[in-house]
Design a protein around this nucleic acid. Sequence first.
DNA 1: TACTATATAGTAATCATTCCTATTTGTCAA
DNA 2: TTGACAAATAGGAATGATTACTATATAGTA
Lengths: 136, 136
Amino acid sequence: MEDFYQKCAEHGLKITPQRRIIYEELMRAKDHPTADAIYKRVRRKLPNISFDTVYRTLHLFSEIGIAKLVEGYGEDRRFEPNLDQHHHFRCLKCHAIYDFHCDSYDELPLPEVVRKYGLVVGKRVVLEGICLKCRK
Amino acid sequence: MEDFYQKCAEHGLKITPQRRIIYEELMRAKDHPTADAIYKRVRRKLPNISFDTVYRTLHLFSEIGIAKLVEGYGEDRRFEPNLDQHHHFRCLKCHAIYDFHCDSYDELPLPEVVRKYGLVVGKRVVLEGICLKCRK
DNA sequence: TACTATATAGTAATCATTCCTATTTGTCAA
DNA sequence: TTGACAAATAGGAATGATTACTATATAGTA
Ligand SMILES: [Mn+2]
Ligand SMILES: [Mn+2]
Ligand SMILES: [Zn+2]
Ligand SMILES: [Zn+2]
């Protein structure tokens, strides 16, 4: 909650009940929720809140750095002709995706901790950054 | 092209000019294209093809294993309250996302090859599999 | 060639996301 | 404490990707 007040002040954003409660719900969430999921939860406390407010506010939070978007999600579906094991570099600006190969990435050991989540069938490293074109 | 004929036969699918040309275009693609991007390219050879055919066919290809969907893309946007460096286990069936921490993943060296793509600002390992609930 | 199950074209429906605008509200200075 | 005003919200509409529908066309087979 400290982060919330500080970052809002830093960016000249007003503290509204909507923003406070959306922030609380997101922080409580363990499931990487969609805007709609947060909307449903927030409505228990603010029955008249609009979906648009929830949606805009979540994006606002990710812009000022108190939340993040899960990478990739929300963008158009994209297809992959390359069936070999490989990894991706994603440009955060233009959304280009480049393939690369790396043996040491292919051979990463699975940490014990993921056992409790399920059976792993695929493993991939995603590097994010700014591509050469976008760095002008 | 071998794969194409073989997998179609294996799955009892007819060879149509539309499928052949969509396959050729996808294999030629280096940009992880959207259905719409492939549609535009295919129309140069088949001006009357419908978008739906391209769309369905690309999904068909990913079902029979001659193409893949780039993970995450096309699904609803999801938000992340956890700002710490961490990695994800994603269930392919129910789309649950679980966080996990792993020091050795955090410290992966960047392979030389990505230098030519751009500046890396983030690094994440994505493990895909079937979660315990979905394994019944 | 003729038959039949599949596949396609064209179009409509759906649904997440984004935009719009009249009204309300948080903040700050008086 | 109050009033002014820029910022934020509610409610609804527009957009655009994805998915569904159906009459017609076609690939594969005998
Ligand atoms: Mn790839
Ligand atoms: Mn996470
Ligand atoms: Zn770029
Ligand atoms: Zn699952």
